[in-house]
């Protein structure tokens, strides 16, 4: 019989892993379609880092769950309602490079602060994965932040487009900080930490870059998409999964 703590730990790992995997899948859509060769390579590398991070958390969840579960099961054999990623990362980029960079930046600043806390987790595997992931996330945030400044403080066209991306994605940032009983249980065991506690720091971080980019930050509005924690998603996730899972669903257990 699995303990409540282990159940919570599995959910916690899947939430982080799902978010990184779905984000990576979106970014990888740029592979072969980047605006310039260097950015094509950069985005493929970023996606690879995120997939690697998700693998670490999936593998740990599988280890706790036992029952023959593997990282591939979580990635390829679960449906839309079982994915626990935040709604922001599943939003389609529609070939808008600035939109991809904005998403990478907003989510990346959050991941940076989350992993910084998780490095102090009493769970050795979680703290190890966090220490590994934070280095990569730091690099992604630096890269995306530079582009936001360059586009925001660039031409009239680039300024307007990156501003539109910010306006469109801003409402999704509230969901990043959502937590529930899973978090509460882990927090009380020193495995996870209260995300609310770094919210001010996150706000300061993103404002710092938006000021440099001459981008006014939208007012906090009442429209705040949510649902990731419960597996309730926007219409876009289903299409994304259909593409990502097509092969393993059509040819179960196919190997290279």
């Amino acid at each position: 019989m699995m303990t409540d703590l282990n159940k919570a730990l599995i959910d916690f790992c899947l939430r982080i892993a799902d978010n990184s995997l779905i984000h990576a899948q979106r970014i990888s859509e740029w592979t072969g379609h980047g605006p310039i060769l260097e950015e094509d390579i950069a985005m493929s590398n970023v996606a690879l880092d995120l997939i690697g991070q998700s693998r670490g958390f999936y593998t740990y969840a599988a280890q706790i769950e036992g029952d023959g579960k593997t990282e591939d099961f979580y990635a390829f054999r679960r449906g839309e309602r079982e994915f626990r990623n935040k709604l922001m990362v599943e939003q389609p980029d529609n070939k808008d490079f600035g939109f991809t960079m904005m998403k990478l930046f907003l989510n990346g600043c959050f991941d940076y602060l989350m992993f910084r806390d998780l490095m102090k987790s009493t769970d050795e595997t979680i703290s190890g994965l966090a220490a590994k992931s934070i280095k990569e996330v730091t690099y992604h945030v630096r890269h995306a932040g530079d582009w936001i400044v360059r586009l925001g403080d660039g031409t009239e066209e680039s300024h307007q487009r990156i501003q539109n991306s910010l306006n469109e994605l801003w409402p999704y940032t509230n969901e990043l900080f959502e937590q529930d009983s899973v978090d509460a249980l882990l927090i009380s065991n020193g495995i996870a930490f209260d995300k609310e506690k770094f919210r001010d720091e996150w706000t300061k971080m993103v404002h710092e870059i938006f000021a440099k980019a001459t981008l006014p930050v939208p007012e906090n509005n009442t429209y705040s998409p949510t649902g990731g924690l419960k597996g309730i998603h926007s219409e876009h996730l289903g299409y994304l999964l259909a593409e990502m899972q097509y092969l393993p669903r059509t040819y179960p257990d196919a190997v290279w």
Binding site: D49, L50, I51, G52, E136
Partner: peptide
């Protein structure tokens, strides 16, 4: 240990 998480 991997160099980068996703190192192929």
């Amino acid at each position: 240990t991997p160099t980068y998480s996703g190192c192929p």
